[in-house]
């Protein structure tokens, strides 16, 4: 579903990604591990062009979104993203956070259709071969109603419907992150990118967030996860990428990679990380 071909990213003289090639298939759960500074977060942020790649291609649903001429906003709607710092909108309450993007985008589409219909109507007045109007079967009120229903359904799913009208500043880290996850779900994405979703959480809140991610994984959502939680990586991943110095050093199924690493760098990293736990 996402084909990454020789992806490169440099900041000035510093080359952070040195040519990454991989394919993320539908329903796959790809976990990226590696030491800090290895470029794994940059790689993830390049996947939805939050960082513009400086070379290579990212083919998502048949379109090279690394191309600057592509309207990236349309493709980002099909890719959710969850951040380390949650990034809930502080000026909006929980349900507004979830509804903002779906409502805005759907009303925008509705308006575009209406404008097109207007011009078609004018054109039809003057010509004999009538062009068909775009079908409009919704209104703004209906869009808001639907988005609200969906948001409440999502909140009910994570057991936070009583928090629908509070502001993010009153929530715990775990609650914020779970809401951030369902906020990206509200756009019905094809794939969700997780950028160290539990690194900023208190230890006792990590579980609830990982449980939610695991649930989504079991439902068949495609995921790319950057994480330091090795136990979680082993449980959820269908494939683990080990990155170091801007390259994919080794990739394998979690069982193989964790119990039988091939590359010396992977061995070294895993021995350091796993000995702590």
């Amino acid at each position: 579903m996402i084909d990454v071909i020789d992806l490169r990213k440099r900041y000035g003289d510093l080359e952070v990604l040195k040519g990454i090639t991989t394919t993320i298939r539908e329903c796959e759960k790809v976990v990226i591990i590696g030491p800090s500074g290895s470029g794994k977060s940059t790689f993830l942020r390049c996947l939805n062009c939050l960082e513009d790649p400086t070379g290579g291609e990212i083919i998502f649903e048949g379109v090279n979104i690394a191309d600057m001429r592509v309207d990236i906003n349309i493709h980002r709607r099909r890719m959710g993203m969850v951040f380390q710092q949650f990034n809930l909108f502080n000026n909006k309450n929980v349900i507004e956070n979830i509804m903002l993007a779906p409502v805005y985008i759907r009303t925008q589409e509705l308006r575009a259709k209406k404008i097109k219909n207007f011009f078609i109507r004018i054109r039809n007045l003057f010509t004999s071969n009538k062009k068909e109007l775009y079908e409009i079967n919704t209104t703004k009120a209906k869009i808001i109603e639907e988005a609200k229903e969906q948001a409440l359904k999502l909140l009910r799913r994570i057991g936070l419907e009583d928090k629908a009208y509070v502001y993010p500043s009153t929530l715990s880290g775990g609650q914020k992150q779970r809401i951030a996850i369902i906020r990206s779900l509200a756009m019905n994405p094809k794939v969700i990118l997780f950028d160290e979703p539990t690194s900023a959480l208190d230890p006792e809140m990590v579980g609830e967030v990982l449980d939610l991610i695991k649930q989504l994984a079991d439902e068949g959502m495609t995921m790319v996860i950057v994480t330091h939680e090795m136990g979680f990586a082993r449980k959820v991943a269908t494939r683990v990428l080990f990155m170091d110095e801007g390259q994919i050093v080794e990739e394998n199924t979690p069982e193989e990679l964790f119990s039988n690493p091939k590359h010396p760098r992977t061995k070294e990293f895993l021995s350091k990380v796993l000995s702590v736990h």
Binding site: L50, I74, F83, N87, F89, L100, A101, A180, R183
Partner: peptide, 29 residues
């Protein structure tokens, strides 16, 4: 926080919409 803008962009909102709906209201405050 730049993360606010990033989150809005990651949801597929354009730069201007993210600015007007998310960043500017917080800046005004």
């Amino acid at each position: 926080d730049p993360g606010q803008m990033e989150a809005a962009r990651a949801l597929g909102l354009s730069y201007w919409v993210s600015m007007l709906k998310v960043v500017v209201p917080q800046a005004v405050k």
